[in-house]
Design a protein around this nucleic acid. Structure first.
Ligand code: ZN
Ligand code: ZN
Ligand code: ZN
Ligand code: ZN
Lengths: 161, 161
DNA sequence: GCGGGTTTGTTACAGTGTATCACCGCGGCC
DNA sequence: GGCCGCGGTGATACACTGTAACAAACCCGC
């Protein structure tokens, strides 16, 4: 999978993500069960946004079937803990590589070439959104901000090829 | 349905939307067929985001069934012409009340109380996003920006009640 | 061991969107 | 007129996404 070196918040490896997930759960008195770990692992290893059915298939093996509904439940849990994000425009899920605070505005950068999804955040952007909402008299509760395009790595690769 | 008086870009009536749709199609040499008109009308009259199956049901009558697939085709056409928007977080569609240029950034304000969807745009916001993307080395092609919350009218109504 | 909450398995189902093929209507063309 | 090509529509079937409901297993404190 590709890495974006272009912004300062560096990506986390699969092992780190699992360790963080485990720590978060212990800290909050919640169970990081084998299924939840497997789902977290599958999402973290994929390198691009995974559909729930993809994950179910990944985790299934001859003799051990994991039903999509179980995956959805694990994903719901992981999302509540901020360990996984849902990409609305793809009906798919990615691991949170940044560990940002809940409510913090995040932009998802979805590469249409390699399928990788990066997270970026910006106070400036958030302030602009807040002002726009205030001007419209709108009280926000939840924001979705997803940009589809080409990541730096893919753009360079295209220009080179 | 409710109206947001809070921002300057004023909403358009159903008749105006239909007239604009017709004008746009004639201008571009495209057909504004009865089905497309009916779908545009259903979306414009609803006052809140409509699912494709809702529209199909609205347009169906005893003896005249409109299949969802036909609605999807009409909606695809109307979206290409910028006459209708898709709300990704709701799997639903709204009429474009503003007639903005293609590529112009727009925020959808989705009221979780009344279900109404308003559009707002902001150069400041767009600039902030552009800078954030540039910093991340990401070239945008399409942006989804949807905020769920409470519109001014509903908030006042709640405080009064 | 028992009771009660949480997690998981299983099945069935609802909601959303697409593929495919046939048919129709309308112009252009011979 | 007859023919053809093309865009739009109808109709069926299907794939993909997500949820409801209930039972079984598990865990933990009493
Ligand atoms: Zn994150
Ligand atoms: Zn890429
Ligand atoms: Zn619009
Ligand atoms: Zn409202």
């Amino acid at each position: 999978m590709h890495r974006h070196e272009s912004h300062d918040a560096c990506h986390t490896g699969v092992g780190d993500m699992l360790a963080r997930a485990e720590a978060v759960c212990r800290e909050r008195g919640l169970q990081f069960t084998p299924l939840r770990r497997e789902v977290m692992e599958a999402v973290a290893e994929a390198g691009k946004a995974q559909g729930a059915y993809d994950i179910a298939e990944t985790l299934s093996a001859p003799g051990k079937r994991v039903a999509p509904v179980s995956v959805y439940r694990a994903l719901d849990f992981l999302m509540q803990q901020g360990l996984v994000h849902r990409i609305a425009s793809r009906n798919a899920f990615i691991p949170c590589a940044h560990g940002h605070a809940p409510g913090e505005g995040v932009v998802f950068l979805i590469c249409r070439t390699c399928g990788g999804v990066d997270e970026a955040s910006s106070g400036e952007l958030e302030d602009g959104l807040d002002r726009t909402l205030k001007r419209a008299g709108f009280t926000p509760a939840h924001t979705i901000l997803e940009v589809e395009g080409d990541c730096g790595a893919c753009r360079e690769r295209q220009q080179a090829g």
